[in-house]
Each structure stands twice: as structure tokens, then as C-alpha cells.
Design a protein around this nucleic acid. Structure first.
Length: 419
RNA sequence: GUGGGUGUAGUUCAGUGGUAGAGCGCUAGUUUGUGGUACUAGUUGUCGUGGGUUCAAAUCCCAUCAUCCACCCCA
């Protein structure tokens, strides 16, 4: 069978690339409207960046990183997410000395070592946005509204935005202690993973699917009910922004997110897919991250969306069906091998006049060339033969209507330029 | 990392112990320089890989790899 792509990777090839182009062009179009600029960071970084940035109690760092030593014995990791790299680049290039806030977007491959399944790959692609330098809750609102605008602009239905506040360094430690005190009595009834969570990161017990754990945790204290004044006000203003801009959302008081750096606003979005991998985007505020990575104390917020999942969702919702062709296609057929040179010259001339034109490169007979033109969805066929060359009169056939008109080369160009 | 399903032509799959198959696709042809339909012909396989059982294995058994699905986690 020859060599196959490594486990968990996939090729975007043939018709599929058009789906990606459609999404990507919509993304860049929207980024211009919101005035975000692209940032391109390396796909590998020092392992330490993710240990400190993402957090070493997270599953991503714990068991999903592609880490290796390079030839200089440096520990390198293929990026599992984008935020840490953006933060690192921002600090490294003293973004804090530039006008704030910094508004970035990125798009590119991410890498996580886990068992592949629907909507999940080892190399997958994320689009993400990061804004650094503003603590204003209306920024949270803007970022959320932007994310929803992306999905709705792509035509995606059944969107469900869930938001929550996970507190800040003032209120979260207190809540953590409360939670631990509450859970102490039920410790033995927790599942084994939650028992370790109890020690390392008790908030994540909210994520457990185990019924018993859910029953226990559902009676426990919720962070949202014990936020400090600052966090409470912040959360209220975020909700206000969403209400003003008609963004629908639900509050999920149990949502905690898998990355350690989140503070205050956290959110996640699904798009109606049943069960597995329904999440197509998520993010939150990370007010401590820049400082944690050695920069000044600057707040930040961002989100990432999983492009494979967007493609999947759009396929399921039938959003790729009537893709508009961007350009009309002209096929120049040659009656015999003798006319090939003339066809090539004509094609070249058409192309230099901004017309999409192609000619036979498979030595097909005339009839087969027409079949081919049909298969590749050509809109027009020009036939080049001895008589045409001699008289400078070429048949121009409209492949959709079947009509054929005759004109000279200049008229061909004039006719085709307009289409 | 845990559990389950599936590996046969480019693709979707049939074949359950006895000569390797079908649809779709692709290529060509159906006389003279014009496509979509129809008809005809052709095309690609170490039946995932390695071992075992058997006179005989695509078929049964074991292993392995790949892939898909679910859990975990996330996008």
C-alpha cells in the first residue's frame, strides 16, 4: 500500500480545499472589519512555554504533547494551542511598548497526541483571536460577539454559547478551599480521577461525567455564587454587552475549562452535533498569563475555534452545496495535433487578458476534449483548427446553453473579459 | 490511556473453505471537426501484514499494523 500519512493526520485535497478556502476567506474578511492583525508564530516552541503557559496539571500538557529533543538537546514541543505562543511573541517583541490593546488573530496547525476519532486529529487546525492589554468587560463582549459573528456568517445553525465566570486570584482560591472542604466528606465516593483532581485541581470535578461525582458536585458550592465584587461586576457587564448586541447565550455555572490560565470570563460553543466533539470553539480571559510568562502584568482574552469541526458541522448542515465558482472557465480545443501550437498561443493570450483558460495536455481527440471540458465544468469552449487560423474566425461555444457564436481573437477577448 | 467495530480495484462494497467480483469512477470506441444521455470495450488487486490450521484460506485461528467509533480530554 506504500507510505501513508501518519496516524491522526489528514490531507486536505481535491474538492475539500474549496471548503477550507471558503471558511478562510470569510475569516480574514471579518478580521478586517474588527481590525485584528494576523500573527504567525512557529509551530514548535520550547517545551517550557507550554508547561508554564498552559499549565502542568492540564491533560494537554500532561499526556498530549508532541515533545522531543532537537539535535542541540533542547526540549521542543509542537504547539498544542495558540495562546501561549502569541503571549510569548508579544512579550518577546515588547508589544507592551506599542499601542494597546494588541489585537491578533492566527490560523494554523496545532498538535495533540491523542487517539483520533471524528472531529479529532493529532494535527488539526485552529483559528484564534487574542487581545492583550485591556481589562474592560466590553472587550469580552466584543470578542464573544466576534466569535458568534464568525459562525453565523458562515451560515452555521443550532449555535449554543455557554458562558461562565471562573473567578480571579482573589476569589478563586477561597472558592477552591470551600469546595475542598465540602468534598472532604465525600472523598471516598469520588471516582479515582476525581480523587486526584481533588488534590491538583478540584474545579475540574465539575467536568466529570461520572453520575456519582455529578451528584456530589451538584450540591457543592459554585464559583459563580461566590465571586468577588470585581468579578461579579465584570460578568454583569459582559452579559450586558451580549444583550445589547443580540448575542444569545446561556450561563453554565458548572463550566470550568481545561486550561489553567483562564480567569473571569470563560466560554464554550457547540453547534448542534450530537454527543462527541460537539464543541467547535472556546476561550476565555487570561489576566495572569502575560505576567506568568515573564511579561508585565497585562490582561488578555481570546478564543480558538477548531476548523475541522467547523468543516464537519458545515457539511452536516449542508452549507457547502452551492459553491459559487469565482471565475468562468474557458477551454481551448485543438482539432488536431497540428493546431496545438495555435491553441497554446491563444490560451496564453487569453490568460494575459485576465481570462481563465486551459488547453489539452493529454493529446485527446476533439470529441474527448469536449468531454473533458464538460467534466471540468468549463463554461466556454473555443475550437482551433486550420480554417479558424486561416480566417481568424473562431467558434465560441457556451457549454451551459449549447449556443455557439463566431468571432475573431479580439472579439473573443472582449466577449470573455466581461464574464 | 480504556473499550468496541472494520481492513478485498481509484472509491463504495459483495464474496463465510474450492478459478478474484459488482456498481460508481477513470480511459478509449460507437467512421467524416463539438460535451452532458445511451451502448460497447478496457483499466487497476501481493483480498492490510506476518504466522498457524487444512489437500485447499479473502473466508477459520493467533499476532501485528492501520482505520473508524465511543470513553477520557478538548477545538
Amino acid at each position: 500500500m506504500g507510505i501513508k500519512g501518519p496516524k491522526g493526520t489528514h490531507d486536505i485535497i481535491f474538492n475539500d480545499i474549496n471548503k477550507w478556502h471558503k471558511i478562510e476567506s470569510k475569516l480574514t474578511e471579518l478580521m478586517k472589519l474588527y481590525d485584528y492583525s494576523e500573527i504567525r508564530t512557529p509551530i514548535f516552541e520550547s517545551t517550557e512555554l507550554f508547561l508554564r503557559g498552559v499549565g502542568d496539571t492540564t491533560d494537554i500538557v500532561d499526556k498530549e504533547m508532541y515533545t522531543f529533543l532537537d539535535k542541540g538537546n533542547r526540549s521542543i514541543t509542537l504547539r498544542p494551542e495558540g495562546t501561549a505562543s502569541v503571549a510569548r511573541a508579544f512579550i518577546e517583541h515588547s508589544g507592551y511598548n506599542e499601542v494597546l490593546p494588541s489585537k491578533f488573530y492566527y490560523i494554523g496547525p496545532m498538535f495533540r497526541y491523542s487517539r483520533p476519532q471524528t472531529g479529532r486529529y493529532r494535527q488539526f487546525h485552529q483559528f484564534g483571536v487574542e487581545v492583550i492589554g485591556s481589562i474592560n468587560p466590553y472587550l469580552d463582549g466584543e470578542v464573544l460577539e466576534l466569535m458568534m459573528n464568525i459562525f453565523t456568517s458562515l451560515g452555521i445553525n443550532n449555535l449554543n454559547l455557554e458562558i461562565n465566570s471562573v473567578g480571579c486570584p482573589v476569589c478563586r482560591p477561597i472558592h477552591k478551599e470551600n469546595l475542598k472542604n465540602y468534598l472532604k466528606n465525600n472523598y471516598n465516593d469520588l471516582c479515582p480521577t476525581c480523587q486526584t483532581r481533588y488534590e491538583k485541581n478540584p474545579l475540574r470535578i465539575f467536568d466529570c461525567k461520572n453520575e456519582k461525582c455529578q451528584e456530589i458536585i451538584s450540591k457543592g458550592p459554585l464559583i459563580t455564587d461566590h465571586l468577588c465584587n470585581d468579578c461579579n461586576e465584570h460578568f454583569d457587564k459582559v452579559k450586558n454587552y451580549l444583550n445589547m448586541t443580540n448575542v444569545e447565550y446561556t450561563i453554565n455555572k458548572k463550566m470550568v475549562r481545561g486550561l489553567d490560565y483562564y480567569t473571569k470570563t470563560a466560554f464554550e460553543i457547540t453547534a448542534g452535533r450530537e454527543g462527541a466533539q460537539s464543541s467547535i470553539g472556546g476561550g476565555g480571559r487570561y489576566d495572569g498569563l502575560i505576567e506568568e510568562l515573564g511579561g508585565p502584568s497585562l490582561p488578555g482574552i481570546g478564543f480558538a475555534i477548531g476548523l475541522e469541526r467547523v468543516v464537519l458541522t458545515m457539511e452536516e448542515q449542508g452549507l457547502f452545496d452551492n459553491q459559487l465558482k469565482t471565475k468562468e472557465k474557458v477551454y481551448v480545443a485543438n482539432v488536431s495535433e497540428n493546431n496545438l501550437d495555435a491553441a497554446v498561443k491563444l490560451v496564453s493570450e487569453l490568460r494575459h487578458n485576465g481570462i481563465l483558460a486551459i488547453n489539452d495536455i493529454m493529446s485527446r481527440k476533439l470529441k474527448a476534449q469536449f468531454k473533458y471540458a464538460n467534466k471540468i465544468d468549463a463554461d466556454y469552449v473555443i475550437t482551433v483548427g486550420d480554417d479558424e487560423i486561416k480566417n481568424n474566425i473562431y467558434p465560441l461555444k457556451n457549454m451551459n446553453t449549447g449556443e455557439q457564436i463566431f468571432c475573431n481573437i479580439n472579439e473573443l477577448i472582449i466577449n470573455l473579459r466581461g464574464v
